[in-house]
């Protein structure tokens, strides 16, 4: 349980920031910029996957 709005927004804001960086990166250049794009944009997807995996029904619940 988190109290207050800042706790609610901390992770979503971080994921949003990573998404913005990732979306912008690959348009600015190739090579390192592409890698920056792929890694940052993978984080929101990975968070979805991990949360789903760990709380899937029948799996021992651990957050």
């Amino acid at each position: 349980m988190r109290g207050g709005m800042s706790g609610v927004w901390r992770i979503p804001a971080a994921l949003a920031g990573l998404s913005v960086v990732g979306l912008a990166a690959a348009i600015l250049g190739d090579g390192i910029w592409d890698w920056l794009c792929w890694t940052t944009l993978s984080v929101p997807l990975a968070v979805c996957a991990v949360k789903l995996w760990r709380q899937w029904p029948g799996r021992s619940a651990s957050l």
Partner: peptide, 17 residues
């Protein structure tokens, strides 16, 4: 509407049961 709803819930909680 996400903010008020999640006020007392942990990020990413999935209450499938």
């Amino acid at each position: 509407v996400y903010g008020p709803f999640m006020k007392k819930l942990a990020f990413g909680i999935l209450r499938f049961g």
